[in-house]
Design a protein around this nucleic acid. Sequence first.
DNA 1: GCCATGACGGAGC
DNA 2: TGCTCCGCCATGG
Length: 106
Amino acid sequence: MSTYTAIYAIVRQIPPGRVATYGQVADLAGLYGKARLVGYALYRVAPDSDIPWHRVINARGQVSESPVRYGSDHLQRSLLEAEGVIFTANGQIDLAQYRWQPSLPF
DNA sequence: GCCATGACGGAGC
DNA sequence: TGCTCCGCCATGG
């Protein structure tokens, strides 16, 4: 049982076609203000897991790019588009439309 | 055990 | 809206 266990549990609850921000996941996991840990947790989990890591984006509605990802950000965008998430010409996602709202009934 | 780093967020300009 | 700086804390050397 580690700190990341809560993070993984939250990410697994994100339904297809929806996205959540790092800060939102951190908050739901009881780690308000510690969004960095969420990013680090997803970096550790890797894509060979059953966790929908691609549904987690930053607060700006964009896919975070980093040298350590070696272009997996492109994969993330493809996975989201496959679920019906539309990207703007600026490479952003309309959070007002796609942000996961766990408090509201589906 | 200390130091640098990082898939981030928010405040300040 | 965009850039810079600081705080957060787990991980690796």
